[in-house]
Design a protein around this nucleic acid. Structure first.
Lengths: 344, 344
DNA sequence: ATTTTGCGTGTAATCGATTACAAGGCCAAA
DNA sequence: TTTGGCCTTGTAATCGATTACACGCAAAAT
């Protein structure tokens, strides 16, 4: 029966003990040069690869971190993942990616991952996870360090990397106000989502500054998806009294909205201005190119990954005691072609 | 010092041996009901979670599979990943996702993952990996089972799940021919890529059937990206003698092409028909909605995952001996609004 | 010449779960 | 009463790498 070469085979081939092989691998400086060379040669000859399971068991760590996100298929997340993967692979850590809602939409599944037995750390991009699932897993010292990125859960005090959604939404609205719009609607994100709430509140605040308000009829329900953007466009089109501009909670919604509007013969931005949120790659290639809030997605991922690495270095007790930092990354408004002064 | 509860703690709490606890977990039928209950109660009380590293070490497996893909940020892959994750999580396996080109574009990095020490199986979605990296890793019995999905590497004989790219491209071209087009161009995928090659060849074959050919000047270079689609549109627009239809090797290219064309005042499909490939979600929401080849992306992922699970059950020697199956999933042409008879 | 210092290496315990094997208990058949 | 068999459980070896500790030897210090 063929078996993968183990550290013993290497030790034998090099004529040293397993301890020396192990040291050569993790701390080459402490062994003499002659031994080191012999060990490396033996490793090459035998084709030895360290057995991670054994290493992890002994070191009491797993060498992996997990990312929990609501939907892998959402292009918004992909660049954040690249950012995370970039930092983590530099640090020699594997990244598990876990979709929290593969089956049902509402009950965000909480995978076994949260446990120390599986990963050394956790990055959570899903604010809709049940917070008790995150908290009810044994004493805090035993739970792996966790950081939130983009979304978060109010009840769970942990480090976060986010943008200022409230201010960004206000900025989008102010852009529309500056163009002369007075009748402004909002295509909302999924109800209950922290981002939806903050963006709606920011929009409301900016409108209030100008002495305006957002009538309920102009707060179109949605869920960040293309389809819900299209639905918002239909609702907008069907309304008797309609706004001259719509701020959408995501680019997918904005693109869905514009597509549906154009399909109905509406001219964008001549008849309706549309602002998005995220700045997906598609935003600048669409016609009209989408005016939107640019999020530094790769930076968010990198920052979250670095913050997690930092927390992983802390002793458990210290980690629990230390306050959770909150990094807020700046966003910019990318003004393109989908916004213009209101008609007439 | 606080330590996670181990199987010993459970055994002690339940008043049994660790062997019995282990059996209760993996094979509940062999222990008596009374003992079983006691063990489960003890597990609940102690908050025990099995230590994966220890289990993996003993069982000589890792409980994880890896997916190697060229670019997480490409929306084409996301739904394939969902399909893979769905099947794998049902099977109780973790999925590592690994971007093979995080740093440099050309040298597709081959991660440590290919080794048995890290994963129990591998799904490769990147046909540009250096094949020697895949093959030069010790004796074949020791390498983890591998299946290709979407893309593949000719030199590496392994199970694959793909579509018939040649036939699909031919189908797209025939659709344009049926509309009356005689001057048809192609926006190509990245050079050297198996998909690019098959799609180009399929397009050529279908043109040849009709007694036509694809002039070099109408084979616009590209790399599947939005930007390269826009570049193709610029090249098309600048040409003195131009085709009345373009078949793009990906939806992103098609959308980039259409965007750039529209931006230059060209009407799609009135002045140029465009066909895509993939059927991304965006395809049906764009204006005009994109005529494209629909790929069953989730099915591809699921099929690849199932095939990998099957191979993982085989004894190493048998796996090496057995021929590699090739599953070809059917595609359909989604005819929408971006194609029409040629002008005049 | 003797002691000290320190470098390089080996021995052996350890991480936590699994499982082959042995053994004990109980009941039925002889 | 004894024997055989089944069911349940425990003992202990094992997976492969890491690391505390000890030891041997050579160079430096006394």
């Amino acid at each position: 029966m063929l078996r993968a070469p183990s550290i013993r085979d290497v030790a034998q081939a090099a004529g040293v003990s397993t301890a020396t092989v192990s040291r050569t691998l993790t701390n080459p400086d402490v062994v003499s040069e002659i031994t080191r060379e012999a060990v490396f040669r033996a490793i090459r000859e035998t084709g030895y690869v360290v057995n991670q399971a054994a290493r992890n068991l002994r070191r009491r760590e797993t060498g992996a971190v997990a990312v929990l996100l609501p939907n892998i298929a959402n292009p918004f997340f992909s660049r954040i993942l690249s950012g995370i993967a970039e930092v983590m692979s530099e640090a020699g850590l594997n990244v598990f990616i876990n979709d929290t809602t593969p089956v049902t939409r509402d009950e965000h599944r909480f995978p076994e991952y949260a446990s120390h037995a599986h990963v050394d750390g956790l990055i959570v991009l899903d604010g809709m996870l049940r917070h008790d699932a995150l908290l009810d897993r044994g004493p805090p010292e035993l739970r792996p360090p966790l950081v939130f990125a983009c979304e978060w859960i109010e009840q769970v005090a942990r480090p976060k990397v986010t943008i200022d959604n409230h201010a960004a939404a206000a900025q989008a609205i102010r852009h529309l106000l500056a163009l002369g719009h007075r009748r402004i609607g909002h295509a909302c994100g999924p109800p209950g989502n922290v981002l939806s709430i903050a963006r709606l509140a920011g929009a409301r605040a900016a409108l209030a500054e100008a002495g305006l308000s957002l009538p309920d009829a102009w707060a179109f329900p949605g869920d960040f998806s293309l389809e819900s953007g299209a639905a918002a466009a239909r609702a907008w089109h069907a309304a008797a009294d309609r706004p001259t501009a719509v701020f959408c909670a995501s680019d997918e919604m904005a693109l869905g909205f514009i597509g549906e509007a154009q399909r109905r013969g509406i001219k964008v931005p001549d008849e309706i201005s549309v602002v998005g949120f995220d700045d997906l790659e598609m935003a600048s290639h669409a016609v009209p190119a989408l005016t939107t809030i640019h999020q530094p997605r790769a930076d968010i991922g990198r920052a979250a990954a670095r913050m997690l690495l930092e927390r992983m270095l802390l002793a458990p007790a210290e980690r629990v005691a230390r306050p959770a930092p909150h990094v807020v990354l700046p966003v910019t408004l990318a003004v393109r072609e989908s916004t213009a002064p209101p008609p007439r």
